[in-house]
Amino acid sequence: MTADQLRSLIASGLACDHLEVDGDGRHWTAVIVSAEFAGLRPVQRHQRVYATLGARMHTDEVHALSMQTFTPAEWQALPH
């Protein structure tokens, strides 16, 4: 799997205002900004992302995914 493919999978199941994906083909990092995260605890946000990936999370396609998840307001409050 490529970073573009993983980015597309996440974006197809989650409306993202900002999405960065990087990795080596099995181990990934992602920064995901979505209004859908509003009111959710961090573990719930991660579960929401995992749901978009489905069975791929249990195969070698996505061996590990480290995420930073933000609402648009949280993202705007960060220094960029």
Rank of each mutant, 00 (worst) to 15 (best):
R26F: 07
E36N: 08
G13K: 06
A55P: 15
A77I: 00
E36F: 08
M57S: 09
R45Y: 04
P79G: 14
W28P: 05
T71P: 02
H46N: 12
F70G: 00
H46K: 10
M57N: 07
E74H: 08
L14I: 03
F70C: 01
V21D: 05
F37C: 11
D22W: 06
R48Q: 15
H18T: 01
R7Y: 05
M57K: 06
V21K: 04
I32R: 04
G13M: 07
S8M: 09
W75I: 02
Q5H: 11
Q76I: 00
L9A: 13
G25F: 05
A55F: 03
D60C: 07
D24V: 06
V21F: 07
V49I: 15
E20P: 00
D24A: 04
T52K: 08
A55S: 14
R48L: 15
A73C: 02
R41V: 08
Q76A: 15
F70R: 09
P42M: 10
E20I: 09
G25Q: 05
F70W: 14
M57R: 06
A77M: 12
L6T: 00
I32V: 15
D24G: 09
D60G: 14
R45V: 04
E36V: 00
E20M: 08
P72D: 10
Q47R: 15
M1K: 01
H58Y: 13
T2H: 01
L6W: 02
I10T: 10
V33T: 09
Q44W: 03
R26T: 12
R45K: 13
Y50V: 03
H46E: 13
H46R: 11
A15T: 15
T29N: 02
R56W: 09
H18P: 03
T59E: 08
L53R: 02
I10K: 13
G39P: 09
A3P: 01
L78E: 13
L78P: 00
V49L: 12
H27G: 00
T71M: 07
A3C: 11
S66G: 06
S8H: 10
I32G: 03
A77W: 09
A11L: 10
V49Y: 11
M1L: 06
F37R: 08
E61Y: 02
A11F: 05
S12Y: 02
G13W: 04
A35I: 14
Y50C: 12
A77L: 07
A64D: 06
D22R: 10
P72W: 13
W75T: 01
L9S: 04
G13P: 00
A35L: 06
V62Y: 05
P79V: 13
Q68C: 01
Q44P: 01
A15Y: 01
L53A: 05
D4Q: 13
G25A: 07
D17L: 06
F37Q: 11
P72G: 10
V43L: 15
P42K: 02
P79F: 11
Q68I: 12
Q76V: 00
G25E: 06
Q44M: 12
V31M: 01
R48T: 15
L53K: 01
P79E: 13
Y50F: 12
S66E: 05
